[in-house]
Design a protein around this nucleic acid. Structure first.
Lengths: 185, 185
DNA sequence: TATTAAAATGACACTACTGTCATTATGAAA
DNA sequence: TTTCATAATGACAGTAGTGTCATTTTAATA
């Protein structure tokens, strides 16, 4: 019995990201989303009760994956380079996270819950970076006279450095060089 | 003749920044602004025809001042350090600029004009940073094997590094150290 | 083919901000 | 104190997204 669904969560998430990346959060509403999905606006309410829950659910999923991928750094030959590499792959996630201040965070209890989860995941992320740096310090590959928080901050800030030329690989090489050895070289 | 004005542009700009910093751009509308200024909402329309013109005008002024201050770096003993120092003082400007994607940029011709001016100023800023770095390269104080765009990008990204402990001065010291000599030290 | 559970839909009421304008208030000069 | 240019105001109509729900559509099953 029953009727076939015309959309699923994957499509919903995909169009959510596309819409936000292309038009910004101000343009993110169910009317625009429905148009892209080719369904009536009210259909989306059968999947998510409001846009805040939809977007925060998506962001939680993004963050979870990023945090998982950070683990690659622990086994890599050049852990810091691996960190930068993983981090750079999540530039879009970073962009998504920047819209957090514009989300009505008190929309529903579920939204508040999602926000809490996001902060926890963000903490995990920082802690993994911290852990990698600490280990590098102990092996003497990283200096000890600068606060760990500053180094972690700089590393996370690198995601903002625009990718100018060619490949992401080259970007990672250059940024890694700068982060490790500085502009003086 | 005439009647005394109850508010002026300075107050308007001040409350605009405060409102956005405290509540985010989503909360920035004439109703909220009027409440803070203690005037009727319609009063603000005597000063600015819409919120997009108000906010972009303010941002243009912010950017102009920041660009001016960049010149300090040209005469400083440690130009790059000075650059970081000036740049850090404009962390709020940076935060303001991040709301640009959420502004309806086609609101009025004046808004489009302001946006154009902002891009120009942003270009000037980049060019000044570029210029300082170039000069440092020529004096042999900065390596030449990394693309200038990457170094400029990293420098501009430092504004995102959180200020954890104590003074801004210490922040500048640490970030400068990292930018020049890297995590390896 | 008839049944029926689940999905999709369009219409409706609601909310909140926007922009305008006729009216009212103010205060400096005559 | 009267005048009047300028500023402030509140009311009103307009706009756009939100969330709900009764109704319609669909497709698997009997």
């Amino acid at each position: 019995m029953s009727r076939k669904k015309t959309i699923d969560e994957a499509q919903l998430f995909q169009e959510t990201e596309k819409l936000i990346m292309e038009s910004g959060y101000a343009e993110f509403h169910f009317k625009a989303l429905a148009e892209r999905l080719g369904v009536a606006r009210s259909t989306i309410y059968n999947y998510y009760p409001n846009k805040e829950e939809l977007i925060t659910s998506y962001m939680v999923r993004l963050l979870e994956r990023a945090v998982e991928n950070m683990d690659e750094a622990f086994e890599a030959e050049y852990p810091v380079k691996q960190l930068i590499s993983v981090w750079s792959r999540y530039a879009n996630m970073h962009q998504m996270l920047q819209i957090m201040p514009y989300i009505n965070q008190k929309a529903t209890p579920k939204v508040e819950e999602n926000i809490r989860v996001m902060y926890t995941l963000f903490g995990e992320m920082k802690s993994k970076i911290h852990h990698v740096l600490k280990k590098e310090q102990e092996s003497g590959r990283i200096r000890e006279d600068i606060h760990m928080a500053t180094m972690t901050g700089l590393l996370m800030a690198t995601v903002q450095v625009p990718v100018h030329h060619n490949s992401l690989g080259q970007w990672v090489d250059e940024v890694y060089e700068l982060v490790m050895n500085g502009c003086k070289g």
